[in-house]
Design a protein around this nucleic acid. Structure first.
Lengths: 152, 152
DNA sequence: TGACATATGTTCGATGTCGAACTAACTTGT
DNA sequence: ACAAGTTAGTTCGACATCGAACATATGTCA
C-alpha cells in the first residue's frame, strides 16, 4: 500500500459530511441574503419549525429538534421575541419551562421570507428530480437518527 | 385551500436544507468532541482538503472549496499555522497570494484525528448502506453545483 | 506607459455560537 | 417530608464567523 493510497483513503462518510457542510454553507448564505438586516438562518428556521411541528413547544424541545445547545436556542428565541415575531409564555404545568408561540407578525414574516427565497430559487430547482430529492431526504433522516442515537 | 394547508405547504427542498442543517450540526459536534482543546471542524476540514485535493493551494481556492468568505479562511489558516500544522509560503508568481502546505505535524495530526473519529463512528456506520451513501453523495454534489451556479 | 478596474488577503467591529457554571423547579427514594 | 439528583433555562466568557473597508498587486485597454 503506497503512502499516497493510505493518505487518500477517505471514508465515503467523511466525504458525505464534507458535502453536507458545503451545502449547508451555501444554503445558509442564500437564505440570509434574503432576510432583513440582522436576521439569521436559525431565526427563520425556528419560525418554520413552529409552523410545521406546531406552536406551544418548549425552548428545549426546539433546541433538540435542531440539535443545538439549549443556550444557543435561548439566544435565538430572544432575537425573535425582540422583533415581535414570537410570543414567550409560561408553561402551564412546569414553572421552570416556557412555551413558544408565533405572533401574527411572525406568521406573516415567515410567509414573506418563504416567498422571497422560493421565488429566487425557482429558476434553479427545476433541475432537481423530485424523486431523488425525496429519496435523499429519506436517507438523510435515517442518517440523522443514527447519529443522534450515537451521541450518547 | 385551507389556511392550514397553505401554511404547511413546505417545499421538499426546504425540508432537505433543514435536514442538512441538522446533520451538519450533529456531525460538527461529533467531530469537535474528538479534537483537542481549541480546535474546530474547519481546522480539520482544511487539513483533510489539502490531503485530498493537494497541497500548495491558495487561501482563496480553499475558501471557495468550502464556500466560506475569504476572511473566515484567513482566520482558520492562522489557527492552523499557530499550531504548526500548516506552512504558509509566498506564491511563486503572484505576490498578492500565498500557498498552503501541510507540515509533518499536520499530516500526523490529521491521521490521528481521522482514526479517532472513525473508531468512534464505527459501531454506528454499519447501519448505513454503502450504495445509498454513494447515491446520496452523487446527488448532493449535483445540488451543490446548482446552488453554486445560482449564487450570481 | 498610465489610468482604471479587478483580484488577493488582512483588519476591524459586530454578532453568532458554545461550554461551563449557575438558579430555580421538579422528581425520586427512603 | 426531606435530601439528593435531575431538568429547564439563563448568564458569562471565550472564540468563530462574517460584512465592509482597506492595502497591495495584477490585469486591461487606450
Amino acid at each position: 500500500m503506497s503512502e499516497n493510497a493510505r493518505n487518500n483513503a477517505t471514508n465515503p462518510m467523511f466525504e458525505l459530511f464534507n458535502e453536507i457542510g458545503i451545502i449547508n454553507q451555501l444554503s445558509r448564505a442564500f437564505f440570509e441574503a434574503r432576510l432583513p438586516d440582522g436576521m439569521v438562518l436559525p431565526h427563520f428556521s425556528v419560525l418554520n419549525h413552529l409552523t410545521r411541528v406546531g406552536e406551544g413547544r418548549t425552548p428545549l424541545q426546539i433546541a433538540r429538534a435542531f440539535q443545538v445547545p439549549k443556550n444557543s436556542m435561548t439566544h435565538t428565541l430572544a432575537g425573535l421575541e425582540k422583533r415581535g415575531l414570537i410570543d414567550i409564555r409560561p408553561h402551564p404545568s412546569d414553572r421552570r419551562s416556557k412555551t413558544i408561540w408565533l405572533t401574527e407578525a411572525g406568521r406573516q414574516f415567515r410567509l414573506e421570507a418563504m416567498g422571497r427565497v422560493g421565488r429566487d430559487m425557482a429558476p434553479v430547482l427545476p433541475k432537481m428530480d423530485p424523486d431523488e430529492v425525496a429519496q435523499t431526504l429519506t436517507f438523510l433522516r435515517g442518517l440523522r437518527e443514527v447519529l443522534d442515537s450515537a451521541r450518547n
